[in-house]
Design a protein around this nucleic acid. Structure first.
Lengths: 200, 200
DNA sequence: TCACAAGTGTGATTTGAATCACACGCAAAT
DNA sequence: ATTTGCGTGTGATTCAAATCACACTTGTGA
């Protein structure tokens, strides 16, 4: 649908101005894809030719450890970019899985397209730099949170930062993101509900 | 010293080719600074006008939590870039401290210089994008390590990835980086020495 | 060179969170 | 409409790592 491309344009224009002519060029690099719930966008062991921009829908990117436990690396809702970036940049096999949690529409961008876009249009190089810089700062925040805060504090901070995710995503996955057991998060969550009695 | 600038040029040329003329321009944005052991490069509460490239020396960037405990965000040895990037990008007050651990020489770059350099020279925009992309991937690795691995595994992984840091930096700081208590790391370390008897 | 600080080792004790085990309600698939 | 599975709540138990307490060793600045 046209709407998806228009949405991408809006997203890009949050960082850089884009003329009609430029966007006609930019759009040619992207390929639209519909993804259904429970479908994998990336599976561990796959080559990772693309990164994805989420027009709408919800994904989780997770890593499975030796013991078979899932650990969530990233949640991605609309307007997020998503891939196994290590595998994507180095064109190696993925160590991560990316699974669709809500029916989605995404635009994919291959590495060569991305690099061509960045080298052809200085402003797109700038756009990608800004995006990854923000991601870097956000990840640093998460590292500090993992190092400094206990489960309760991490959950509260997460809730304050991402109220939309708390509402949409099952708690068990929030627990996997925060490095907390399902049960511990349930008890924290209960304690919170006791403090703030329901408003209806 | 000239040598420092030459070293910077080599560092940049690992990513992009740079002509003599270009480098004469690039170098004008950087300011050399000597830093002594125990000196702060950034203190929590300071404005953060610059990021720094380490020509030689060693720094630790750490965050102090409410309980007064230090948590190490980054070690930076020669050829690393270092700042409180959140505060730097947003030109707000630092929440981190950066302390010199070994006499150092650094080149500082203000935010406006950095952005001018990136917008004047497309290839420098590319350079900075590559740098931050690599940092992003490295941080993601660290997050996965914090989520998936126990203290022993984290220490062993760290040792395998950064043998130079293990040698140069006191173990107590490694512990703070890994989110482990000093004592636990000491016991892990002892267990390792028992397994691999000393070679002399 | 001497004294004090910083870093490390090691035992005993405590504790926060994981794990185990089970029940219950709701959503989705047939 | 009903069965199956997924997400959640909750108690009992275990356990890994933090904390506490102290000694020893090394580095270093006056």
């Amino acid at each position: 649908m046209m709407i998806v491309m228009e949405k991408l344009r809006k997203h890009i224009e949050e960082i850089i101005p884009v003329s009609d002519g430029e966007f006609d060029y930019i759009r040619t690099f992207f390929t639209k894809k519909r993804v259904r719930k429970h479908q994998f966008l990336i599976q561990a062991g796959d080559k990772v030719p693309c990164e994805y921009w989420i027009a709408y829908g919800a994904f989780r990117a997770f890593y499975i450890d030796e013991g078979g436990r899932e650990h969530i690396v990233q949640f991605a809702l609309e307007n997020s970019w998503l891939s196994d970036y290590h595998a994507f940049f180095h064109q190696t096999e993925s160590t991560m899985n990316v699974l669709c949690m809500e029916e989605a529409e995404v635009l994919s961008l291959t590495l060569s397209s991305r690099e061509k876009l960045a080298s052809d249009l200085h402003k797109m190089e700038h756009f990608f730099r800004m995006k990854v810089s923000n991601g870097y700062a956000a990840q640093q925040h998460r590292i500090i949170s993992l190092l400094c805060r206990n489960p309760k504090e991490r959950y509260e901070e997460f809730g304050a930062m991402f109220p939309d995710i708390i509402k949409r995503i099952p708690k068990k996955y929030i627990a996997e993101y925060l490095g907390i057991s399902r049960e511990t998060l349930s008890r924290i969550h209960l304690a919170q509900r006791r403090q703030i009695p329901s408003k209806h």
